[in-house]
Design a protein around this nucleic acid. Structure first.
Lengths: 233, 233
DNA sequence: GGCTACGATAGAACAACGTTCGATGCGATG
DNA sequence: CATCGCATCGAACGTTGTTCTATCGTAGCC
C-alpha cells in the first residue's frame, strides 16, 4: 500500500504520502485542537498535497477517524500490555482502566470515537479482549463477565465524555484557566437558594477545583467494589 | 417573548414563531433522525419561515441544542419527580437512573448533549440536585456524595453514548435489523482464533442479541452495590 | 389619523466543510 | 519507446452554520 517514499526530484510538484503518514498527521491535528481541527484541507496542507489525494487512502472522514482512533488505541494497548500482572484480577483491571483514562486525558477527542466500531478498530477489539481476560480469573458467569467489562468501559467512557466537552471559548483563548472557570460556575451555584438546592450546596466546595482523575477513580472504585462482591471474593 | 400567535389573515406572507415553537420543532427534528437532521434550513421550513429568523431566538446551533436538551430533560425530570419514594435511598437512585435511561433509549441523541452545560440547561441542574438529594440520606462525606452522583450519571452517559452511535447505513435503511447486525458482528468474532481471543469467545453468545437495557442495569447494579458498601449499609 | 420606533421576519450572500470528477503525472512493465 | 495503472491534484458541487441588510407590521405617541 503506497510504499514509495518521497523523492521529489526538484521543485516540489507532487507529494507522495503513505497510509502511515496520513493517519499520523490526522492524529496530530486531532491532538492539537480536537475533532474540528481535522479537516481534509488542513490535513492535505500538512501532507503537502492535494485534498482529493487523501481519498485514495480513506473512503470518508468516518473511516479516517476510525483509523486515527485505532492507531492511538494501539499505543495505549502497548502501554497496558506493559503493566505488571498481579494475582488480583480486579487490581489489574483497575490498573488497565487507569492507564486508559490517562491516555484519554491526554487526548480528550478519543472519548467520542472510542469503541465505536470494532470492525474498523481492530486494536479496540484487542483492548476489549485484554480487559475481559481479567474477568476470566473471577468466579462469574459468562453474562456477568460480559457485563463487567461493559461496565468498566462504561465508566471510562462516561468520564471521557465529560473530558471531551470542548471547553468554552474563553478557556481555549487562555483568558481564563480551568480553575477560574470552575470557580465561576461554583459561585453561581452558591448563589442558588439553599432550600431548593441542598445537595448542590453540600457539594459545591468539592466541585470547585475538583480533579477529574479523582472523580474517575471514585466511580471506578464503586464499580470494582461491586464486581468484587459479585465474584464473592 | 413573542407571544402573538399565528394570524396569517390571508396569503401566508410572514410566519410568526415563538421560543416555544422553535424548541419544540427542533426536538421533533432531533427525534426523527438525530442531530444531523437538525439544520437551520429544515427547521425554518418546518416553522414556515426564513432561516435567519431563528437567529432572533437563539444565538447559534449550540444554544439551540442546549435549549432542546433542557426542554426534554424538563419532561424527564417531571417523570422522575412522579416516582414514589421509598425508605431506601439506593433503591430510589436506581429507579431514577432507570427512568433516565429509558428516556435516552427513546431519544438516543440526548446522550451527546446531556449535562453539557448546567448554565444553559437549568433542568439539568435540577436533575442533578434530585439525584444528589438521595445521597444526603446516606452516611457519606460530601466528597463521597459528589463522586457518587457523578458515578451514577457516568454510568448512564456511558451507556447512552453506546446507544447514541448512529447505526450503520444498512440498519437505517431497514435492509438489516439490529439483531442481524449484531449477529453478523458476533459471527466475525466467532471466527477469530480462540487462542488469541479467549474472552471474546467466552462472551460472544452473550453479545449476540444482547439487550442494551440489561447491560445498563448490570453496570448500574455494580455501582450501586459499591455505593451501598461505601455507606456501610 | 398619521408617524415613528422597534420587535420580528426573511432573502441573499459568505466562508468552510465533506465529497466527487476528470485530468494528469510518473514509475514499472512490455 | 509506448503502455498501463497506481497515485495525485485542482476545480467544482452541494450542504452546512452564520451574517448582512432590507423590510414588514403593530403599539404607542403627538
Amino acid at each position: 500500500m503506497a510504499s514509495l517514499q518521497n523523492r521529489p526530484g526538484q521543485g516540489r510538484r507532487r507529494a507522495s504520502h503513505s497510509m502511515e503518514s496520513v493517519v499520523t498527521e490526522a492524529v496530530a491535528l486531532l491532538d492539537e485542537a480536537g475533532e474540528p481541527a481535522l479537516t481534509f484541507r488542513a490535513l492535505a496542507q500538512r501532507l503537502g498535497g492535494g485534498v482529493a489525494s487523501i481519498y485514495w487512502y480513506v473512503a470518508n472522514k468516518d473511516e479516517l477517524l476510525d483509523l486515527a482512533t485505532d492507531h492511538v488505541i494501539g499505543s495505549i494497548l502497548a502501554d497496558i500490555e506493559r503493566l505488571p500482572s498481579s494475582d488480583d484480577p480486579v487490581d489489574d483491571l483497575r490498573a488497565m482502566a487507569l492507564t486508559l483514562f490517562d491516555a484519554i486525558v491526554d487526548r480528550p477527542w478519543l472519548g467520542a470515537y472510542f469503541m465505536r466500531n470494532t470492525d474498523a478498530q481492530s486494536n479496540s477489539l484487542r483492548l476489549y479482549e485484554k480487559l475481559g481476560r481479567e474477568t476470566l480469573r473471577l468466579d462469574l458467569t459468562a453474562q456477568q463477565r460480559f457485563h463487567a467489562v461493559s461496565a468498566v468501559i462504561g465508566v471510562v467512557v462516561g468520564s471521557a465524555v465529560d473530558l471531551g466537552q470542548e471547553p468554552p471559548q474563553e478557556v481555549l483563548d487562555g483568558h481564563v484557566d480551568r480553575d477560574q472557570f470552575l470557580g465561576r460556575a461554583a459561585q453561581a451555584w452558591r448563589e442558588l437558594d439553599p432550600q431548593d438546592f441542598p445537595f448542590v450546596h453540600e457539594i459545591v466546595d468539592e466541585f470547585d477545583g475538583h480533579d477529574d482523575a479523582d472523580q474517575f477513580r471514585s466511580a471506578l472504585e464503586l464499580t470494582l467494589a461491586g464486581l468484587r462482591l459479585q465474584a464473592g471474593a
